[in-house]
Design a protein around this nucleic acid. Sequence first.
DNA 1: TATTATACCGAACATTCGTTCTGTGTCAAG
DNA 2: CTTGACACAGAACGAATGTTCGGTATAATA
Lengths: 222, 222
Amino acid sequence: MEEKWQQLTDRQRGIFHYIREFADERGYPPSIREIGQAIGISSTSVVNYNLERLEQHGLIERDRRQSRGLRISEDGAELFPADLYDLIKIPMLGVIVAGEPIPVPASDFSLMGIEETVELTREIVGDPKDLYALRVKGDSMIDALINDGDIVIMHHSQRVENGQMAAIWLPDREETTLKRIYWEGNRVRLQPANPTMSPIYIDNPAQVEVQGKVVMVIRKVD
Amino acid sequence: MEEKWQQLTDRQRGIFHYIREFADERGYPPSIREIGQAIGISSTSVVNYNLERLEQHGLIERDRRQSRGLRISEDGAELFPADLYDLIKIPMLGVIVAGEPIPVPASDFSLMGIEETVELTREIVGDPKDLYALRVKGDSMIDALINDGDIVIMHHSQRVENGQMAAIWLPDREETTLKRIYWEGNRVRLQPANPTMSPIYIDNPAQVEVQGKVVMVIRKVD
DNA sequence: TATTATACCGAACATTCGTTCTGTGTCAAG
DNA sequence: CTTGACACAGAACGAATGTTCGGTATAATA
C-alpha cells in the first residue's frame, strides 16, 4: 500500500488529504472546483485528471456524473486510520508465555503482514504509538491478576518508570513475568499486582530485561 | 432526544434513514432529487421542506447552495450509533463494591442522563444489547482476578448458563462476588476465576441472586 | 529526430442541483 | 365560517458541477 503512496505526485497527495479533511469536517466530499481552489489549480480538468490517477491507484472511488460523487476507498482510509476515525488498530503480535521471551515488535511497525488486530477506541487506548497486543497463554501470571486467554496491550518502550507494570524477562530464571517494577538503589523489586502476594527482589539489575510496558488488560468472558 | 423523533412525520423519518444509509454506502450524501425519488416525492420543494424540518429538530445539518450539502448531525448520529459506526457506547452505571448490591440498570436503557460511557468496538463487544459497565472499587475481588479500578462490562440477564461468570448478590452474607456459577442439583457452586482457589458451596439456591453476566474485564494500567 | 506518455491549462457545454414561486388540500383554533 | 399553520405538488430559474475538447510543456524513449 505504501508503494502506491510513493508513486503519487505532491499534488495528488495534497488532493487526497484535502478530500479527507473536507469530508471529515463537512460530512460530504468536496466538488472538483473546491478541490482546485484549495490546492491551487485553476482548471477543473486538471483536478479531474488527478482524481482519475487517485482512482487508478485505488485510494478513492468515484461515481461519475454525480456531483461530489467521491469517497475515500477502504485502502485509502487505512492509510491514516487515526486521523479519520477514533478507532485504533493494535497488531496482535503473538502469545506471551511464562517460559519464553516476548516477541519483539518490528521497528517500522507498519501493520503490514499482520493478519490479526485488536480494534480499540482512542478514548480508552490513549496514544496509539508503539502499541501491540499479546494473547496470554497459561495460568502462570495469575499473580498479576492475568489469566489464560487474556489480551495484554503493551507499549514498546525500553525505559519504564518506577511503579509501572512491565513485561520483564529474567535471563537467569528463563521466565517472563508481568509485575510492577521498582528500582531501589542497586536492587530491583518486582511487585505482583495482587496485593496479597509478596514481591521478588533481584539484587543484580543486569538480570532484569524490560520488554515493554503493560498498558491495558482485556479479558473476554465466555 | 427521543421526543424529537416522535414528533417527526413518517416521511421525515424515512428521509432521515435514507440519508444515513445512502451516505454510509456511497460515502456522500444524496441530492434532494435522489431523496425524492427514493421516498416517493415528486417535488423537490417538498423534500426541501422536510429537510428544513429535520434541520430544525437538529437531526441533520445543511450547507445551503451547495449540492449535497447535507450531513447527519451529532445528535442524529447518536440516535442509531450501531448502524453507522462500529462503535458501541456502554453506559457506566456506577461502582461495584463487595459490600453493596449492584446498581440495577434502568429498564428502558436509553443512555439518557448518563454522563460517563465506555466506548468499545463491536468487534470485541459483540452484541451491544443490555450491556453496562461498572467500575470495581476495592480489593475484594482479587479471587476473580479483578482489581481495584478495573472496569467490568456486564450483561443484564437474569438467567446465567452453567459455568458462566456472573455477578452474584448473597443476601445472607450481604456480599457481592464475581464468580463462575454452577447449578449442581440442589446446591450452587461458586467457582473463583483463580484456579488455585477453592469454590464456595451454597446449599440453598434461594440465597443466590444473579445480578448479571460478566462479559468483559478491562484494566487500564497507569 | 520523431514519438509517446505525463502533467497541465482554458474554455465551452450539458447536466445536476438547490431555490423560489404559485397553488391545493387538510385540520384545528378562533 | 374564517383563519392560519402544516404538508404537499409542479414548474421555472439560476447557480453549481462534471465532462469534453483543443492546446502547451517536459522528459523519457525509440
